[in-house]
Simulated scan of single mutants.
Amino acid sequence: MSQNLQINTLNLQLSRYPQAASSDLRAWNAADELLVEFIDNLDEAPATILLLNDEFGALACALMAHYRFAKSNIYWLSDSFVARQALTQNLQANQLNSDQRLTILASTSAMPKADLVLMRLPKSLNYLEQQLIGLQASLSAESQFACGAMLKGLPKSVFGLFEKHIGNVSTSLAKKKARLLFGHYTGVQSTSPYPKRWQIADYQWQLNDHANVFCFGKLDIGTRFMLENLPQGEFESVIDLGCGNGLLGLRALSLYPRATVSFCDESLMALASAKNNINLNLPEQLERCSFNHDNALQHQADQSADLVLCNPPFHQQNTISSHIAQQMFKDAKRCLRSGGKLIVVANRHLGYHPLLKSYFGGYKLLASNNKFVILSSTKR
Rank of each mutant, 00 (worst) to 15 (best):
I7P: 00
L14E: 07
R16I: 06
S22H: 14
D24C: 04
R26F: 12
A27H: 04
F38T: 12
F38A: 08
L42F: 11
D43P: 02
E44N: 12
A47N: 12
A47M: 08
L51R: 09
G57R: 05
L59D: 03
A60W: 10
C61N: 02
R68E: 14
A70I: 12
K71N: 06
Y75W: 15
A86W: 02
L91S: 03
Q92V: 03
Q92I: 04
N94A: 05
Q95M: 05
N97F: 06
T103F: 08
A110L: 09
P112F: 07
P112Y: 05
K113W: 04
K113T: 11
V117D: 11
L125H: 14
N126T: 08
L128M: 12
E129L: 01
L132P: 07
L135A: 06
L135Y: 05
L151A: 14
L151I: 13
K152N: 02
S157D: 14
S157T: 15
L161H: 13
L161Y: 13
E163C: 03
H165M: 02
G167M: 07
N168H: 10
N168C: 02
V169M: 09
S170E: 15
L173Y: 06
K175A: 14
K177I: 02
L180Q: 15
L181Y: 12
F182V: 01
G183M: 09
G187Y: 06
T191G: 03
P193V: 03
R197Q: 12
I200G: 07
D202I: 11
Y203M: 10
Q204H: 13
N212W: 00
L219C: 12
R224N: 11
L230Y: 01
E234S: 12
E236V: 02
L247M: 06
G249Q: 07
R251K: 15
S254K: 14
C264H: 10
C264V: 15
S267N: 07
L280W: 13
N281E: 14
L282F: 10
E284D: 15
L286R: 15
L286C: 12
R288M: 02
F291A: 08
N292L: 05
Q300I: 01
S304Y: 04
D306L: 04
N311M: 05
N311V: 01
P313E: 10
H315R: 14
Q326Y: 13
F329Y: 15
K330C: 13
K333C: 03
R334P: 02
R337I: 03
S338Q: 13
L342K: 07
L342N: 10
V345F: 08
V345E: 10
Y352V: 00
Y352I: 01
L355K: 10
G361K: 05
S368Y: 07
N370F: 07
